[in-house]
C-alpha cells in the first residue's frame, strides 16, 4: 500500500518543483530564450549577471541563461535515453535469467559478474576512449555499464514473483511463457522499475558530466551543463558564475532526482538488496 505521507515533505515538494522547472525550461527553451545560445558576441563577453544577461555571458559572449535553458534539453534527454535503454535491456535480461533459470541464468549471472568486475567509470572511460568521443560511444558506454545493476535486481524480483501462486496458476492453465513475462511479471515490477529508472537517471547524469568534463562526452557547441563547467575551467577564478551556475544546475537536478527516487521508494516500500548509487 502506498505511503502517501512521503509526498508531503518539503524535500519532495522542492524536488518536484525543481524537476518540473527544468523540464518545462527544456521543452519551452526556444520560446523562453532571450538570446541565441549559439551566437557569440565578442563585445559583450565575460559579463557578470545583470539586467540584460540574467546569468551573464561566457567567454565568447554567449548568453549564459539561454545556454542553461537549452542545455537542460541535452542533459535530460541524454540521461533519459540512456536510462531507458539500460532499463529495457536490464529488464529483458533479468526476466530471462529469473524466469527460465537453469543455463540461461548461469550464463547471464556469469556475464553480469564479469561486467560488474570492471569499475563503472573505468569501463566507461575505456569504451569512450577506445571508440573515440561522441554521442554513440557515450551512450554505448553508459548502457554497457548500467544494465548489470538492473538485470540483477530484476532477476531477484522475477524469482520472487515466479514463486507466487498466481504465476503457477497461469502456467497450469497453459499460458505461454512470453505472455506470462510480458503481461504479468513486468507489470508487477512497475514500481520497482520506476524507482530504479529515476535513480539510474541521476547516476547517468553524474557519469555523463564526468565524461564530458574529461572531454569524452557531449561535444561542442552543444550547451550541455557539464560541458559548460569544463569550458569555465579557464575563467572561473575571475568569473566564478561561469562555474557556479551550470554546476549548481547539475547539483539541483541530481539532488531532485535522488529525492524523488528516494521518496518513491519509501512510498512503495520497495527494498533492493543491491546497493545502488
Amino acid at each position: 500500500m502506498i505511503n502517501k505521507t512521503v509526498f508531503k515533505t518539503i524535500k519532495f515538494k522542492l524536488a518536484v518543483l525543481i524537476l518540473t522547472t527544468i523540464i518545462i525550461a527544456g521543452i519551452a527553451a526556444p520560446l523562453l530564450v532571450p538570446f541565441n545560445p549559439f551566437q557569440p558576441d565578442i563585445l559583450h563577453r565575460l559579463q557578470f549577471p545583470g539586467a540584460t544577461h540574467l546569468f551573464g555571458t561566457d567567454s565568447l559572449g554567449r548568453d549564459l541563461f539561454s545556454r542553461i535553458l537549452f542545455g537542460s534539453r541535452y542533459t535530460i534527454l541524454l540521461a533519459l535515453l540512456s536510462s531507458l535503454a539500460a532499463v529495457l535491456l536490464g529488464t529483458a535480461i533479468g526476466c530471462l535469467a529469473g524466469y527460465y533459470g537453469k543455463w540461461p541464468d548461469t550464463i547471464i549471472m556469469l556475464l553480469s559478474n564479469i561486467f560488474q568486475g570492471i569499475p563503472g567509470i573505468c569501463f566507461m572511460v575505456a569504451i569512450a576512449g577506445f571508440f573515440g568521443p561522441g554521442l554513440p560511444s557515450l551512450l554505448t558506454a553508459l548502457i554497457i555499464t548500467s544494465w548489470v545493476d538492473f538485470s540483477r535486481i530484476i532477476r531477484t524480483e522475477t524469482l520472487k514473483l515466479k514463486g507466487e501462486p498466481f504465476i503457477e496458476g497461469l502456467i497450469c492453465i497453459g499460458c505461454s511463457n512470453r505472455r506470462i513475462i510480458i503481461n504479468h511479471i513486468v507489470p508487477n515490477m512497475f514500481s520497482s522499475l520506476l524507482i530504479l529508472g529515476t535513480m539510474r537517471m541521476s547516476r547517468s547524469i553524474l557519469s555523463i558530466s564526468a565524461l564530458s568534463f574529461l572531454g569524452l562526452g557531449v561535444q561542442p557547441p552543444a550547451p550541455d551543463w557539464s560541458v559548460m563547467v569544463s569550458d569555465a575551467l579557464v575563467y572561473y577564478r575571475s568569473y566564478p558564475h561561469l562555474l557556479l551556475i551550470p554546476g549548481g544546475c547539475i547539483l539541483a537536478l541530481i539532488y531532485s532526482l535522488n529525492a524523488v527516487g528516494e521518496s518513491l521508494r519509501e512510498a512503495f516500500d520497495v527494498r533492493f538488496n543491491e546497493v545502488t548509487r
Binding site: L60, P133, G134, P221, D231, V234
Partner: peptide, 27 residues
C-alpha cells in the same frame, strides 16, 4: 580547451558564408 572555444567561434563565422559546421573533438 581553447581550441573548442575557437572552433565554436569560427563555426559561427563560417555559418554566415553558408558553411554548416560539425565540430568533432578528437584525441
Amino acid at each position: 580547451v581553447t581550441q573548442k572555444g575557437e572552433a565554436e567561434l569560427i563555426a559561427f563565422w563560417l555559418s554566415e558564408i553558408g558553411l554548416d559546421i560539425k565540430i568533432q573533438s578528437m584525441e
